[in-house]
Design a protein around this nucleic acid. Structure first.
Ligand SMILES: NC(=O)c1ccc[n+]([C@@H]2O[C@H](COP(=O)([O-])OP(=O)(O)OC[C@H]3O[C@@H](n4cnc5c(N)ncnc54)[C@H](O)[C@@H]3O)[C@@H](O)[C@H]2O)c1
Ligand SMILES: NC(=O)c1ccc[n+]([C@@H]2O[C@H](COP(=O)([O-])OP(=O)(O)OC[C@H]3O[C@@H](n4cnc5c(N)ncnc54)[C@H](O)[C@@H]3O)[C@@H](O)[C@H]2O)c1
Lengths: 214, 214
DNA sequence: ACTATACTGTGATTGTCTTCACAGCGTGAA
DNA sequence: TTCACGCTGTGAAGACAATCACAGTATAGT
């Protein structure tokens, strides 16, 4: 109920902490210090402690944080009770890569169905995910409780796709199309703009090469 | 030489402005107001004006900004003189999607070559991009001036790949692997972590649905 | 030529996130 | 039992980015 008050950057870091903590736990460790967790990311120990404080967990001044306990607490914050359903729209190159990724490993957030206009994808099972024609989207959404939609269609179709997902009850979108989606205020949009990321990288490549060597 | 002093968020927005300005120009417009440019992104008009101010461009108080002129100025900032070379390492699902994307449309930043361990990809032309065996990477880099590397290999191979790229002279990496790369200070790393993005989206889907309707 | 208008340019302000710095404390050693 | 150590928890300070608010100004209309 008070989830809304976690700052966006903290949520992002919590996801990363979880990944590292899981790896540590799997490697047989039981406890971590803030500076160890900080070193694995590119953050300061103080930042880690503040994040942990924010989610209401605490460690021992001498032994650090209990990995399993912290992991549970992060899960309580991040994981919705009952899980979120996720659907993918657009089974092109990117959509297939996403299906391979989220179906391949036992993902905490599995994609339950995919949709596309192309008739030949309908009825297929791609990387373990059932694909349907886009016309079946709204009836699918009305039958299942789906909170997240992934938009991996061409830019021209993105707004229309967003509309359909939101009308079907989706509350958040992960958008890969290079357009700003127009959505109601109660819908969250996370944009992943790979072209912008590459341009930014290219820019900094240039400025790094102008700087003094270290 | 003074490029290094542009804040990261501004660079990101400049990429977005450019995309919109290009579209406007193509649509036959000659000038824009800050509020129009702002509406296309999700930023305030003041933000747009400040960004424009920062890059040393100015518009007319009545007619707004000249689209072509602003576009040129942004290009001067973002585009390296002579262009940056970009190589891709890891021609799996994601790597192929990237090649399709950056080869398909006439991208401002084309990928000049791709590398993979799998012998069957060597010598292939995928979406217009030549693919080579990873063993050829260092000799390729020594022959061409390449400033940017895209890391699309499995997490386990990411650090090794980063090392090879940096040793070959690359100054910035676009990293899709879910690991924090350890690089020298004069190398820039842009992480695109799709799994984290999805988890974040799922989290906000949950908190949005708890909020009051609008 | 003059005026009304609506936009730009920017100093000042606000807000947000990060970092500092240290008090408090649990633990292990003597 | 006592002490010293090194980590956590956190108020305060700092850094940075976004926004406000308004003075300055170029244009179109009269
Ligand atoms: N491939 C990449 O690496 C990459 C990188 C950055 C951004 N993107 C963006 O991601 C999106 C998808 O990219 P892609 O490379 O997979 O493109 P793609 O052309 O390979 O795939 C698009 C898919 O969407 C389907 N589609 C089209 N209109 C539809 C509609 N109205 N409803 C449902 N499905 C529809 C098509 O049939 C196709 O299968 C694009 O917006 C692209 O700009 C892709
Ligand atoms: N596919 C996605 O949607 C997605 C999403 C998020 C993150 N990622 C990350 O992106 C990376 C690639 O994902 P993918 O789905 O394309 O995986 P993939 O297994 O399909 O492709 C990996 C490719 O890398 C090649 N490779 C392995 N070791 C190599 C090495 N040492 N040098 C050069 N090439 C090597 C393999 O031959 C393979 O072609 C992974 O780190 C993955 O975690 C992928």
């Amino acid at each position: 109920m008070k989830n809304v008050e976690f700052p966006d950057p903290t949520i992002e870091r919590l996801c990363c902490y979880r990944r590292i903590l899981s790896a540590l736990l799997a490697a047989g460790h039981a406890r971590v210090y803030s500076h160890e967790l900080a070193a694995a990311q590119r953050v300061t120990p103080a930042q880690v402690r503040r994040d942990v404080m924010l989610i209401g967990y605490s460690g021992s001044p001498v032994k650090g944080y209990d990995i399993a306990g912290l992991l549970d607490r992060i899960g309580e914050i991040l994981d919705p009770p009952g899980g979120v359903g996720v659907v993918l729209v657009g089974v092109g190159y990117l959509g297939r890569a996403l299906l391979a990724y989220f179906a391949g490993r036992k993902s905490p957030i599995p994609v339950v169905a995919a949709f596309d206009v192309a008739p030949e994808t309908s009825g297929q099972l791609i990387h373990g995910c059932h694909c349907y024609h886009i016309d079946e989207l709204s009836s699918f959404l009305s039958r299942r409780s789906i909170l997240v939609g992934i938009v991996a269609v061409p830019a021209e179709a993105a707004q229309k796709t967003a509309r359909e997902l939101i009308d079907g009850g989706v509350r958040a979108l992960l958008n890969f199309a290079p357009v700003q989606l127009d959505v109601p205020q109660n819908v969250y949009v996370e944009n992943v703009d790979i072209a912008v990321s590459l341009e930014k990288t290219a820019f900094f490549a240039q400025s790094m090469s102008l700087e003094k060597e270290d």
